[in-house]
Write a protein that binds this DNA or RNA. Structure first.
Lengths: 227, 227, 227, 227
DNA sequence: TATGAATGAGTCTTCATTCAT
DNA sequence: CATGAATGAAGACTCATTCAT
């Protein structure tokens, strides 16, 4: 690269933590929102700045570069939600279905409060090639994921959880059903077949699927029923 | 010669169907693959050309511009898979769980043959702001979706399908669990908690979740058991 | 950095050697000239492009980036001159003063033909922090420099070369006197004390200094004379 | 308050002479050093500020703008050295070789005390397009230069100075040999042929070259000796 | 005196697109 | 069919400069 100038750190640059929280927060909000709506790759620094009513140079002033902006979004937005959703897991309650119910509850709640959550997660974390993936990977609560899987496996051994399901995939199924439904919410309005579904209906549906899928099945095959 | 040809239609331009099918197909493959891996917004015409070993100018020669390339990807790649997955639905078989089983089967089969399917769908069709969304919307098999939902509703009325689930959301749940698991496959290898799962295990798990979720539940609450 | 796009090499990019020599050469000329006149750090890609009558994008088309443009200037302009100036050294002729005379001759000749030589060398190669320094260092003809120094040392031992001079610094002195005089040529016209000197006068002066400085001095101190 | 102050002169602005000499001097030092090391064009106000541990705004506070900072560097740093080097010339001593010896002595002495001298002079004053050139031109000691040239010419007429040299170029030769050697000092360590030379060796060499070049040559050609 | 916030202008670089050959 | 040359528009990033505090 041989930039034309050497690099000496300048005092006075706001470091990720302090300094005029107002605009910084506004920019993070703008960024998170645009990233969710358009995807990270399709969002320019200029769009983010414009949404906050400032010049693109201000985005660089506060985050130094695109990369560190992504870091900030992860640190100060995404991780916060993960913490909230997974927080209670691993201490106290250990009944598998109740754990899952809690996760579902908190996930829906978070998505309601932070509408950027489903699209952003789906596209940039869970999806292959997502731009937050590498950043998130080391910060995923893998211990808690593991713990949940173990509780489910315990349940299977104890005969209270459907032995056909794979404990390690349960959370992924929960995420898939939830996020996909939420991320496609705006789509429904325009597909006649799906019009007019409420968030509550959605949550109830996902819970029914999970509860049914995880519970011990009746004796015979798939057409079930207890007679 | 012919200085200043208008935009209309140049003689000798290949119309979407004939003309050296080889390269055209190669370019579509390259495009589809890169779109899936990096996202559409992050993929340049040059990258597509390079992957096929030609110049960017050739991509324009074959598709005229970026927009029509996306159209072609939708028409000649994505729709083909949708057609295959939904083809058998709506005629013959009408038993809900069997319908779902068929869709799942064909979806997994397609994902195996076209590995670009899960990421591309997740990111560019299902997700908010996906770049193929608008293009796909009018071409979704909404009639068939509707028909599936009605069969499930029939099942609920007949007492053979879990009345707590929402028939219109079942396919979305199926998609969510399937695509998400497949799209995250490469991620598992690196999360200790999820290492070493096979595609078969995954398919069995999803089926167990669906079958369990859709079947009539035993009498009481979520901890199940039949008496 | 995380550029928004991956890098796949594109065919069709001209590689440093072939491809439309015209504009490439023109751009190299423009670059070399501007670098000499304004310094590398103060010269923008846009200025180079403008001087050749094209858009800045063309400079990138031909050289990919600023760094490789510098490489090209070194390879295809500067090294060529070095080769010419030092070419004959090390074979045949070994009489020290004749060697020096040859170097001086060829240096002046080169500077006449390539007026960018003195300023560019002075600023970007010889001077501390010069932007071509690191690039040139491994390519300097150090073997030949060494060889010249050894011939001078031989001369000193044989009593034909002034024992007070440092053989290893002789070429640097030659360079200093020559380049500085040439680089300041345009300055002379404006300093009354120096007006109206010709290149020939200059060359004769430098030669006189070198010849006098290198030759065996008369017996006594600095006010000389043979009496 | 006082909204919209004009450009004229703000009360409380430090005028080039008083006001917290500490920081002002520090900034000038930082600027001079960076200019010498990287070149003026490549040095930003921010780098200068950073090196002095303050914000870029402070540099503007003290120097108003980049241009006036350059003026200050010339006035308060560069001219000081010129004054010292040329001070004694023109009064008293008039023996040409002794004059030259004095200049050489003081130049080396200055370079030792102000290591920024050689690179800065070479790049920004002597070299074509140097950014201090125009600023320095009217302030060069041209009368003294002229006077030195005349004394040398006197010597030629009197038969004590080599008639082949050009009196007006002698100082340039001195400068060239000295500055170039000093500016390349850091380079030597890395060119095997030049490793390990000391400043004293250098000074002795330059003096030998000058003394030899300026002294009356023996009768014959370049291989010299007094027979 | 000193700073943090803010900006406008500019620089390098990329990219879709065009076109003559 | 295919390419190399060329461009305009845009994007990330830098920097001198201003200003309220």
């Amino acid at each position: 690269m041989t930039p034309r100038t050497g690099k000496i750190r300048q005092p006075g640059r706001p470091s990720a933590s302090q300094a005029h929280p107002d605009l910084r927060e506004q920019l993070l909000d703008a960024a998170t929102g645009l990233f969710a709506r358009q995807g990270i790759a399709a969002t320019t620094m200029g769009q983010i700045a414009a949404q906050a009513g400032v010049t693109p140079a201000m985005v660089h002033y506060h985050f130094t570069n695109r990369d560190q902006l992504l870091d900030a979004v992860v640190d100060e937005r995404v991780m916060r939600v993960i913490g909230y959703v997974w927080g209670p897991v691993g201490q106290g309650e250990a009944e598998p279905l109740a754990l899952v119910a809690g996760l579902l509850e908190r996930l829906f709640e978070s998505a309601e409060r932070q509408p950027w959550l489903p699209p952003l997660w789906l596209r940039e974390v869970l999806n292959e090639g997502g731009q937050l993936r590498e950043r998130m990977l080391p910060r995923l609560p893998s211990a808690k994921l593991q713990w949940l899987a173990e509780r489910l496996a315990d349940g299977q051994r104890a005969g209270s959880v459907n032995p056909a399901i794979e404990p390690r995939l349960v959370f992924l199924s929960l995420l898939g059903m939830t996020l996909l439904s939420l991320a496609t919410a705006s789509l429904w309005q325009r597909v006649p077949a799906l019009e007019g579904l409420s968030r509550e209906q959605l949550q109830r549906h996902v819970w029914a699927m999970l509860a049914g899928g995880l519970s011990m099945p009746p004796e015979e095959g798939h057409s079930g029923g207890c007679r």
